[in-house]
């Protein structure tokens, strides 16, 4: 891969302040996103994936601080180091270069302003002065996501269904033709039919608009459908990264294996279905050594001593587990 990655996250660490002590939500996450590929970040609730997702656009709450690492974008020949950028620069960067669709669009829009106006607001905030132009662009995008522009533009948020709102949000995210789309739990709050629709839509977006998408999710089946590469995260740290094929057919880290085993398949035959016993560790008082050891069926004594580094398993496939050797 000679080309520079669109997004490079390097040794990121994020802490929350809490009464009991600092919560180490993200301890050491590094990954890269290349042009034309979809990346899926898989993890349970509390794995740190959402915290990291928010940090990618400097949207972390005030109680969270980035204690180490960097988040650097290379888009249209320019370099953007999120941590070093000033607030106004970050504001202009948001949505225009990188757009983020947060979990559950149920309340994503201002309830007292019409959808059409909110599209306009988005355009105006980024220097586009012509309302006609923005509206035309919005209507085109709404048609792209298979919604009726006339109906949607003049509607208020409460007049739309959950699935419709999700699509509108996606359409709005594409308004400024960003290079990267970050989607946090894009389909979790939706019913299964709507999920299917959204997934097809996302495939269409990748095909026709050349946007690279970063999915943050707990849903492996989503990753299987849409991702080119997968990154699994546990207790704030990367545990495995590789091409989708490698992850699904040749998983190394027991956590990844556990996740795959816990995902039901359409073809039935789920007698091998099992959940990972135990629960995620307390991010304030982390155990020594490998954080997954307490739940790992393959754990040895040396697992509890030192936390394993990322070890190369194959081309582009790394896992932080002693089993990788």
């Amino acid at each position: 891969m000679a080309a520079k990655p669109l997004l490079k996250v390097d040794k990121l660490a994020i802490e929350y302040t809490s009464r009991r002590g600092p919560v180490l939500a993200v301890r050491d996450i590094s990954f890269e996103l290349y042009d034309g590929e979809n990346l899926c970040i898989i993890g349970e609730s509390g794995s740190g994936k959402t915290t990291m997702g928010m940090a990618l656009l400097k949207l972390s709450p005030p109680s969270a601080t980035i204690t180490a690492g960097s988040i650097v974008y290379h888009l249209s020949g320019k370099e953007y180091d999120i941590r070093k950028m000033k607030d106004e620069q970050v504001r202009q960067f948001r949505w225009k270069e990188v757009a983020m669709v947060l979990q559950g669009a149920l309340n994503a829009f201002n309830p007292v302003i019409r959808i059409g106006t909110q599209f306009l607001e988005t355009g105006w905030a980024h220097g586009i002065k012509s309302s006609k132009q923005i509206t035309a662009s919005a209507e085109e995008l709404l048609r792209f996501v298979q919604l009726d522009p006339k109906r949607v533009m003049s509607a208020y948020q409460h007049e739309l269904s959950g699935g419709m709102k999700q699509r509108v949000l996606i359409a709005m995210a594409l308004l400024l033709r960003p290079k990267i789309l970050i989607m946090d739990e894009a389909t979790s709050a939706l019913d299964i039919l709507t999920q299917r629709n959204i997934i097809n839509l996302l495939k269409k977006i990748k095909r026709e608009m050349g946007v690279s998408i970063v999915f943050v999710s707990h849903d492996l089946s989503l990753a299987a459908e849409l991702a080119d590469r997968i990154v699994t995260v546990y207790a704030g740290r990367l545990v495995e990264v590789g091409k989708t094929e490698d992850i699904f057919y040749r998983p190394i880290h027991p956590y990844t294996i556990g996740l795959i085993k816990a995902t039901p398949t359409v073809t039935g035959d789920n007698k091998d279905l099992s959940s990972i016993k135990g629960s995620p560790p307390d991010l304030i008082n982390l155990p020594k050594g490998c954080k997954f050891a307490p739940r790992c069926a393959f754990a040895e004594d040396r697992c509890r001593m030192d936390e394993p580094e990322l070890i190369k398993v194959g081309e582009g496939h790394y896992a932080s587990c002693i089993r990788a050797k």
Partner: peptide
């Protein structure tokens, strides 16, 4: 949520 999303939109 919509306040967060508004920030993300760059408003």
């Amino acid at each position: 949520d919509y306040v967060q999303v508004a920030k993300a939109r760059g408003l």
